[in-house]
Amino acid sequence: MELSDRDLSLVAALADGLALVDRPYRVIGDAVGLTEDEVIARIAAMKEAGIIRRFGVIVRHHELGFRANAMAVWDIPDHQVSELGRLLGDAPEVTLCYRRPRRLPDWPFNLFCMIHGRDRDAVEAAIKALAERHGLSHHRHAVLFSTRRFKQTGARYGRRSAAE
């Protein structure tokens, strides 16, 4: 799907989410020069094309009592990482799962999972269960608990002029 300039303006206008008013799609349309129906149709098309991965209520884990989060990382041989990534990505304990490049010597890990839990023990137990279930214990790994959140907002994909 090719995104038009109008679509990119729509993406930017969506960054702060829908207004809490009875006709939120009309509010967005007014901001970017589309009708309400056009806004709804473009969002549906972007969902259909997989550009929008999810459209709905976006919650904050921490405020809802999931106060612990860790980035669990493993060094998985390149020929195994995709298959293992798919397994971990489907695991109920895992919120996000990505393959990223190693940066030797500083950073030897190539598989990243985000894991949220009510407390540190819950997150550690989840990581242990994952490692056992998927035979990860012989791979080099690290667990980076978050100790402080300095910033958490929605992504600003849109052009700055349109987003602000």
Binding site: L3, L8, V11, L14, A15, D16, G17, L18, L20, P24, I43, M46, G50, I51, I52, R53, R54, F55, G56, V57, I58, V59, R60, E63, L64, Y98, R100, F112, Q152, T153, G154, A155, Y157, G158
Partner: peptide, 20 residues
């Protein structure tokens, strides 16, 4: 603060770029 927004999560790199 329990709700960040009602909105879209975009597929990484579908629009623009990003990195960790």
């Amino acid at each position: 603060g329990m709700v960040s927004r009602v909105g879209a999560v975009f597929r990484p790199h579908a629009v623009g770029g990003s990195t960790l």
